[in-house]
Amino acid sequence: MASKQNKALKKRRLTIVQVISNYPDAQPVPSNKGGTEKVVHELTEELVRRGHHVSLFAALGSRSSARLITYPKGLKHSQIPQYVLRHMPSDTHIIHDHTFRSAVGRRKLPCPSVCTVHLPVKRHGKNPVYVSKRARQLMGRGKGFYIYNGINTHEYEFSSEKRGYLLFMGRIIRNKGVLQAIQVAERTGKKLLIAGPIKAPEFFRKEIQKRIQRNPNIRYVGAVGGDQKQKLLKHAECLLFPTLWEEPFGLVMVEAMACGTPVLALKNGSVPEVLSGFPQLICKSVSQMARKAQQKNYPSPAKLRLYVTQRFTNKQMTSNYLRLYREIIRRREQKRGQRQPTRR
């Protein structure tokens, strides 16, 4: 009987609600700037392509093939659960909460939920999903699930032609390692382009801006997206990812490799997992990163792209989430069945 139920569940088209945060500087879905927004977009679109009924709750300005419900202007983060419950389909099978504090998943809900933990937070919802094994180990203490983020590789331009510059791409904050990227450029004498929004203005002004002004080989190009982001990624000699914290995933590493660009990264957070196929690119220190940047002993661009297509695609991510959705729904239905009184 259980086997028949599992087979029936696998064939069933699910009604799924995807929920993303709404906060003052929320990015619309899809976004070339917000990693979480991009992941949610890829997951939503692939679920729709597979025939599932998906509702997406997202910021104003979002676009989607799913049924799109945008948050009204002024809606606070704490008001998201009530808004979702009021507007979601009555036949919803599962809610997927991507909000940064699992705002919906921590509530009492009429259906099961999963909560992807995109950033480190103390309060998790039911069925937490982490974006790497390391994140599950640190934030979930080994409990919950992990599913890697995925991208649509067809949207990333591949190039074997490189133009001799190093690239740092990410938010300009201390923990992202932009200062360490500058140190690599200073030690190697190589050109460095820095791209990303300035999220710590005082840090940028006091510690970054002066070093850029002193070195003509280093240039800050601002926050980037679209064609400009593609060109920077595909033509870079190497992407530097000197993260100083326990980065849960680091989507830009996958994006760079999809463009055929190698990544030199410090051995923190998810780096050993994301770069497990290329251990020679993992660095223990800034000094080692500088040496590797000078040696340029990189895998071929074609090998880097193939690696991403085999491990970090939107299709693989969606298949993994669907398996998890169905397992959680199955458990819920089984539990409800056990509660039903037996008829005499």
Score class of each variant (00 low, 15 high):
Q334E: 09
V17C: 15
S160V: 14
P301K: 05
K296V: 01
F158V: 08
P248V: 11
D97A: 08
L304D: 13
S300R: 15
K108G: 07
M169S: 07
K10A: 15
P128G: 04
L275P: 05
G61C: 06
A185V: 04
R336I: 13
F278C: 09
T318Q: 03
L60S: 11
T92L: 09
Q334S: 14
F312W: 05
I172C: 14
P279L: 09
S78E: 13
F203Q: 14
N22K: 11
V252A: 07
T44N: 01
T261E: 01
S276H: 10
S160A: 15
M317T: 13
L60A: 15
V114W: 12
I212Q: 01
L304E: 11
R331F: 04
C111S: 11
A290Y: 06
S31Y: 03
T36F: 02
G277D: 01
E202H: 12
L240W: 03
T36R: 00
F241V: 00
D227F: 02
G140Q: 10
P110Y: 05
V114F: 04
K76P: 02
R49E: 08
E207G: 02
A258M: 09
T309I: 11
E255W: 03
A2H: 08
L167T: 04
A195M: 05
R311P: 11
K133E: 15
I282G: 11
T153I: 14
K190D: 11
A66Q: 05
L192Q: 03
L322E: 14
D227S: 12
L75S: 08
V254E: 03
N149I: 10
K267W: 00
P201Q: 08
S270W: 05
S78R: 06
P279Y: 03
S300W: 10
K176R: 15
E37R: 02
A265L: 06
K199R: 14
P89M: 12
S287D: 14
I198R: 05
T309V: 10
K296W: 06
R163Y: 02
S62K: 03
K126L: 11
R187M: 12
R330N: 12
Q288R: 14
Y307E: 09
K108F: 06
V178G: 07
R13E: 15
V308K: 10
V48Y: 06
